[in-house]
Amino acid sequence: MSDELHEEIRAAVGAILKGRDSQDDFDRSLWKDLCDTGFHLLGVPEEIGGSGGGLRDLAVVVDLLAFHGARVPVAESAFLAGWLLARAGLSIPDGVVVASIDQARVHRRDGLRLSGRVRTPWGRHAGHVVTTAHDGNVVVSPVSAVERQENLAGEPRDVVVLDNVEVTAVAPVGVEPDEILHRGALVRAVQLAGAARAVLASARRHVAQREQFGRPLARFQAVQQHLAALAAEVTAMRVSADAAVLAVEASDRGAAIAVAAAKATTSAGAHVVAGIGHQLHGALGYSAEHALGAATTRLWSWREEFGNESYWHDRLAAAEGSVWSVVTGGDR
């Protein structure tokens, strides 16, 4: 993904990201700037209130936000909620809207009501949650009660408690839980690759600047070998995520396999990347003051979300056909 449009997106979002140092779990000022420029809903059709553009355009933004450890829910709003709403043909409500991982139950009492406890990343900061009912219908409702939980990176991983909440909008679509799982796995794969790139960038800077035994760390062959292995894994993660985004955007026959393989690769790569990354940074990188931890704690969190590598390894093993037919993924 290196054509001109994507370079422009990268430059524009990069400019917005410059000089942020919010310590809150939600960077409201960044979010506002993203909303003002429309980057928070890139890849979501304009007809429902999105900013238009394709999935790859959105992936560029999500990747960059992950690279910077940005504390904003673009993955949850555009990639997940926006996708669900587009599938349902429902317009995007005002304010922060995120998607739940779990299904809820719809019943009729003074109109349509929604009940259930649904895991919802960023739920505490959302005005609305998009969820699916047990029949696969896509439902929009306000967020009232939230049980707060966090992942290892301190990102909100809340449970939204829906207790007879009045439904804002509903559409009969028939979205399967497995589709949400794949969509979530895809966006986490993109984010994992972005965070991994941040580790590599930081490691390169660090070994070039830090001197020990009278020379920069970069002069030590052992360090060079580590850095090359790190770059290899980061590149593998990035290309796998890119390929999966490409396959999903094109609705390729092999799209589901691509997502499974990309999430498996990026999840498994998290250990390698975080491990080498910390080793190269020495004790300095272990301090909460160093930016490295923001990337590695995200790697350690995101690898588990929407299926870790073992989950996707099992899925790939169960796929139809020979190993080779799975590996070549039939992208047509």
Partner: peptide
């Protein structure tokens, strides 16, 4: 490929096949 053809009943082996499949998929993309 030869091993995968005879491991479908064994969950431990299947997971390893899946792991190697994912890796091969990514290496092929690279």
């Amino acid at each position: 490929e030869a091993w995968a053809a005879q491991t479908s009943d064994d969950p431990v082996a299947a997971r390893e096949v899946g792991r190697l499949t994912a890796r091969a998929w990514t290496l092929r993309q690279l």
